[in-house]
Amino acid sequence: MNLVLLIASLSMIMGFFLLLSIQPKELTSQIFNGLTRTPKSIREEVKEATGQKKPSIFKREVKEIESILTITGREHRFPMICACSLILFAIGASIAILLENVFLVPVLAGGFLFLPFWYVRLTQTHYKKDIAAELETALSIITTAYLRNDDILTAVEENMDYLNPPILSVFQSFVYRIKMIYPDITKGILDMRGKIENNVFQEWCDAMIACQYDRSLKTTLTPIVSKLSDMRVVNGELENLVFEPRKEFITMEFLVLLNIPLLYFLNKDWYHTLMHTLPGQFIVAICLVAIFVSTAFVIRLTQPIEYRR
C-alpha cells in the first residue's frame, strides 16, 4: 500500500512540473539560495562576522560547495548539484517509508541530501592535486628560463609547448594580454595571479612582480617553486598513511549494512525484532546516523595538505 501511495505522489508531483512548465534545476537552485540567503538582522550579521554565532551545518556546506565549484570553474553545475541533492533527499525518505521505519525518514533523507556535496569535495581533491602537479612543472621550467634571460614574457613563450591545461590557458591569456592588449607586465601578472587558487602560485606571482622592480630578487623564485615539490612529497606520505584506515572504515561500513540482510537468513526472529519493532528500528536509525556522520568526518579529515602563507 505504501508503495502505491508513493508512486501516486511522485506521479502527481511530476504532473505539476509538466503542467506548470517548471524547470527542476531552476526550482532547486532557488530553493537552496532561499535557504542559504535568508534575510538576517544586523545583530546576527555582526555575530557571524565576529564568530560568536556560526551558520547552520547545511548553510556552511552549501556555501563551501558553491565556492569549490567556483574555484574549479564549474559554477554552472551548482543547479544540477542542488537538483541531485533534492532528488536523493526524496529517494532516502521514500526508502524509509517503504521500510515502515519512522526513525529512518530524517536519517536517510538528510544523509542522501549530502551525498552530492561529498562527491564535489572528493572531485575537488583530485582537481587540486592535478593543478599542483601541473604548476610544479610549469613554474619550474618558466623560472629556469626567466633566470637565464630576465624576461618573463620570453620565458613563458619559450615553454608554452610544454604546458598542459588548465595551466596552459592561464599563461596563454597572459601572453596575449601583454602582446595584443596592454603591455604592462605587472598588471598582467596580477591578472594571472587571480585565475588559479593556489597559495604557492600566488606567492610566485608576488615574487615575480617584485622582480620587475629589482632583478636581484629573482633568487627567491626557486625556493618558492620547491614548495610544490615538498607538498607533493608530504601528500604522498599522507596518502600512504591514511590508505589502510580508510579501507578499514569502508569495510566496517559494509559489514554493518550487510548484517541486516544477513540476519534474515540466520535468524528471522532477530530480523523481525530489528526491522519491525520500535527499539530495533531506533537501533537501525542510530547505526545509519553513525555511518553518515563518520563518512562526513572521514572525507573532511583526509583532504590533501595545502601550503598556507
Rank of each mutant, 00 (worst) to 15 (best):
P279M: 02
G92K: 04
R43P: 02
K247C: 13
S140C: 11
I13V: 12
F201E: 05
I13R: 06
E306S: 09
H276N: 13
I7W: 05
L27H: 12
L288N: 11
P106A: 00
Y307M: 07
L153K: 05
E244W: 14
F282G: 11
F243H: 13
G34C: 10
P245V: 01
S29M: 14
E197N: 12
S9M: 09
R246P: 13
T144P: 01
H272P: 07
P165F: 09
P24V: 04
L18S: 15
S67W: 12
L35K: 12
T251M: 01
I286A: 02
G111D: 10
S9G: 02
E26R: 04
N2V: 00
Y146S: 02
A155H: 03
G92F: 00
L278R: 12
I13A: 08
Q281D: 07
C82R: 05
L278G: 02
V200N: 03
I167E: 01
V62I: 09
L18W: 12
R43M: 08
I185P: 11
E26T: 04
I260T: 01
L10Y: 10
Q23W: 05
E64H: 04
F243S: 15
V107N: 04
L301F: 12
N2D: 05
F78W: 00
S294N: 02
V256S: 14
Y127A: 10
I209G: 14
E61N: 11
W204E: 12
L19D: 13
G111L: 06
T50R: 06
A93V: 00
E244C: 14
S173M: 11
I131D: 09
E66F: 12
P245R: 11
N240P: 02
M14Q: 04
N240H: 06
I260P: 00
L288W: 08
M231E: 14
V170E: 15
L217S: 09
Y162G: 11
G110A: 13
D151L: 01
E239D: 09
T277C: 15
I167T: 08
T295I: 02
E66Q: 08
N198D: 12
M1L: 03
L35S: 10
N2K: 09
I97E: 02
E61F: 04
I42P: 04
L257R: 11
D191E: 14
R43A: 13
L3K: 07
M180R: 13
L108I: 03
G280A: 15
L88T: 06
A133S: 15
P261N: 14
L69M: 01
K53E: 06
S29K: 10
I189N: 06
A138D: 07
V225M: 01
P106G: 05
R37H: 00
V107Y: 03
K54N: 06
A285F: 09
P116A: 07
